[in-house]
Design a protein around this nucleic acid. Sequence first.
DNA 1: ACATTAAATTCGA
DNA 2: TCGAATTTAATGT
Length: 232
Amino acid sequence: MVDAERLRTIANWSHDLEDEAFERARNAVREKSYRQGATVCEKDRDSRDWVGVVDGLVKLRALSEDGKEVTFSGVHAGGWFGEGSVLKGERRRYEVVALRDTTVALLDRGTFMWLFENSAAFSRFLVGQLNERLGYFIGLVENDRMLEPTARIAKALASMMNPVLFPDVGDHLKITQEELGLIAGVSRPIANQALKALQGDGILKLEYGGITVIELATLQDFGDIGAGETGG
DNA sequence: ACATTAAATTCGA
DNA sequence: TCGAATTTAATGT
């Protein structure tokens, strides 16, 4: 359990909760820290928790049956994930790995379902979250076909700048080129080249240990154009 | 893989 | 507590 101020800090969705819902959430949430490289959630196990990243960075990766692995998302501070598995009560279909030392918040399935069924505010939040998630996965299908590193980097970056999934994200992201490479599935030197190209187009600005996005819309379009041209 | 540069840390005053 | 020196981490090629 955490105190009220802490819950507001780590869980953006708690802001409009009714009093009872807020109290239940406050009592149920616990925090846990992981070292860089540690597995936060194993595939096929414990999807009884909904997970929020308080601090740090994790990547979600799916392992298909033929052993091929696909990283499909990077989640940084402010992002919550796993609502799909929790709602359906099924096993997690992906594993979660910390890319740097990370603290997560966990909300157990029982409390999650109670909030879903009894709190209008929470349900509203969830609908928005699931809608964004759906849009993201539709984009992911296109992303699969575009192998150009620049487009992959653009897509990975754009997904991490989503203001619905990451409420407090501004135009700046604290992430190294190596971490971004791990999420996009390219080597660090390739990530570096792709980022330089995007910077050259004036879409973003590179900094030491971080990136400032100048044209988010253009960044998102980058993926769409790449997918459209390769199709057919 | 290597050279360069930025940041974090240590150390001495 | 300040700043220079050293070490570590990130970037660029």
